[in-house]
Design a protein around this nucleic acid. Structure first.
Length: 411
RNA sequence: GCGAUCGUAGCUCAGCUGGUUAGAGCGCUGGUUUGUGGUACCAGAGGUCACGGGUUCGAACCCCGUCGGUCGCCCCA
């Protein structure tokens, strides 16, 4: 048979094993645990949707829709898209599945997302996020609770050191429009000082100039108007309520008056937990209030707020890999005792002890091989005078006794 | 789409200003101690030096191109 060339993995996808996979699983497990503490219900969603779900919600940012999404036609000629984010799909489900009946609805999910981008540190084409949303709650307490949840999660993961919550308000629709107009006027008056990239941003997405990395833009950005002057009284009060909630819960934060969202449906609270430990990808967890989104998708006007965080990025920030230590590892040193070893293995696992065995290769080498597998106890199974002979190496005397009893079941 | 950088056993890497049959550790396979042993000792298998051209008496090493990885720019829902 002709040897074929093994297909390569797709650019930007990952195959995880060992420490990388353990870190990933630890993030997901911690998220699942903490999310229950806050009463967020687990939801499951399709990985692909009608392209309109995303193109409609993303709207004006044509680059994102046309160049960054994995879209394709299915056999029926419908345009489908691999989800590039969770929020639009959740909003669609909220409308089409009648989830209004549960409002206000606190939901959480996690899974793969897809964006057609050039991979770099902490950025992949198939990547994974955890996600939490509160839909149908207009009050600032919802924003605060989501932030308290996020802060708690980062602390549980042990990565809150070196990660700071940066917070801003985009105000209500009126405040946002006023600020946008003030920014355009400011930047338009300083065209000569701006970089080429920012000149095109001025046409397409002027608020983005605020987070330009080009040093030429820094001076112009520095004395750009803050939103504070543009805020309506209602918007100002809303933001105060959010920060009051954070204060009461003991969550530290920093104001970043330059933090923006490109999409029109964002209102009020916008936030990012950022770090300088991930190179150019500084955002660990981000979100905000998107009161306009569900209406954009043809649903009733519905207030909503949420956040998402990259699992890979969180996993990279974990100080040490979660231990993958077994309770017991067995070295079968005499093949005539195979059946007894298997019986013992089943008894150990039935009693809730994690266990694995080394039963292949040269019998005399199995002990050394087993000794290299991290475990609390190392058990060699051999024979003496035709009968079972056990040798248990374990610092924990009580555990050793338990293992000895379980390994002799049925003898 | 653009830029920088890298590509040598399954893995992590050596390999001098270009000079014989390309090296180590780990892993894998086999053997040794007639042993209750904590990662031992010996041996073996495993390499189109990413791929394709070029320069040269001679290229893993120099030049060009292609592909791939990494990091950054753009973008960031």
């Amino acid at each position: 048979m002709a040897k074929i060339q093994t297909p390569r993995p797709i650019r930007g996808t990952q195959d995880m094993i060992g420490e990388t996979a353990d870190r990933f699983a630890h993030v997901v497990e911690t998220f699942e645990r903490v999310r229950k503490l806050y009463g967020f219900r687990r939801i499951e969603l399709p990985v692909f949707e009608a392209t309109a779900v995303f193109s409609r919600s993303l709207g004006e940012t044509t680059d994102v829709v046309s160049k960054e999404m994995y879209s394709f036609e299915d056999r029926g000629g419908d345009s489908l898209t691999l989800r590039p984010e969770f929020t639009a799909g959740i909003a669609r489900a909220y409308i089409t599945e009648g989830w209004q009946q549960y409002a206000p609805l606190k939901v959480a999910t996690h899974g793969p997302l897809f964006r057609y981008e050039r991979p770099q540190k902490g950025r992949y084409r198939q990547f994974h996020q955890i996600d939490a949303e509160i839909i149908g709650a207009a009050e600032p307490l919802a924003d605060a609770e989501l932030l308290i949840f996020a802060d708690h999660l980062l602390k549980e993961l042990g990565i809150s050191e070196g990660v700071t919550l940066t917070l801003n308000t985009l105000g209500d629709a009126a405040s946002r429009e006023a600020w946008r107009a003030a920014l355009v006027a400011h930047f338009d008056g300083h065209r000569a000082a701006l970089s080429e990239d920012s000149l095109t941003r001025l046409e397409k997405n002027p608020m983005r100039i605020l987070d330009s990395k080009d040093p030429r833009d820094q001076a112009v950005v520095a004395d750009a108007p803050d939103i504070d002057a543009c805020l309506t009284d209602e918007a100002r009060v809303f933001f105060e309520r959010v920060t009051d909630g954070l204060k009461a819960a003991g969550v530290a934060w920093q104001r970043n008056a330059r933090l923006v969202r490109g999409l029109d449906y964002y209102r009020h609270t916008a936030f990012e937990f950022i770090t300088d430990r991930l190179g150019a990808q500084g955002t660990v967890l981000g979100g905000g209030r998107y009161d306009g989104l569900i209406e954009t998708l043809g649903g009733p006007a519905t207030p909503a707020v949420g956040w998402a965080a990259g699992i890979e990025r969180l996993a990279m920030l974990l100080d040490e890999a979660p231990a993958a230590t077994l309770d017991v590892v067995i070295a079968l040193e005499d093949d005539t005792m195979l059946a007894q070893a298997l019986t013992g293995l089943a008894a150990l696992r039935g009693a809730g002890l994690s266990a694995d065995s080394v039963t292949s290769g040269s019998p005399r080498k199995r002990f050394d091989k087993a000794a290299k597998i991290p475990a609390r106890a190392l058990v060699s199974v051999g024979s003496r005078d035709g009968g079972l002979y056990l040798n248990i190496h374990c610092d924990d005397v009580a555990l050793a006794g338990r293992i000895d009893a379980l390994m002799r079941v049925g003898v």
